[in-house]
Amino acid sequence: MQIIKDRNIIEDSWQFIADEHPLLPGDCTVTLERWLKEKEQLLRHDGKVGVRIESTDNLEILSGDLALIPLVEVNFVIFSDGRAFSKAWLLKNRYQFTGEIRAVGNFLADQIFYLSRSGFNAFNFEGNQNLTLALSMLNDFSVSYQKPANQF
């Protein structure tokens, strides 16, 4: 599967594992709830383990674990839920998270510029988005009135 990461289209093999299923070989993401419950066990997994957060999740609980996590996915149930933008900003800025922040779920290519300014560096689109077009939208604007999320 292809995604956009760090301004490139790349092959990606992370898979999200729903709570009731066992991890699969390779790199997996799990819900915040599962992470909190099964952290010790998850850390013994062969591949890497990341966490998927929802816009209603409280990031604070995860803040102490961020050094252990290479990837945080922020899930869009609906593209107009702007909480995800603030979540990414907080991860990057307040919690100084240095790993990958990935947008997943129902968001739009037209949001990609704002998303990247808010702290996201990877984008996994639902459906068959034209990734070359989406990639070009990262350059929709060459100027901004606001500092990007990592420059506070």
Partner: peptide
């Protein structure tokens, strides 16, 4: 005005 214009984080408020 400048700060609000295309503010990336606050484009999808409630």
């Amino acid at each position: 005005r400048q700060w609000t214009t295309l503010h990336p984080e606050f484009a999808y408020l409630p």
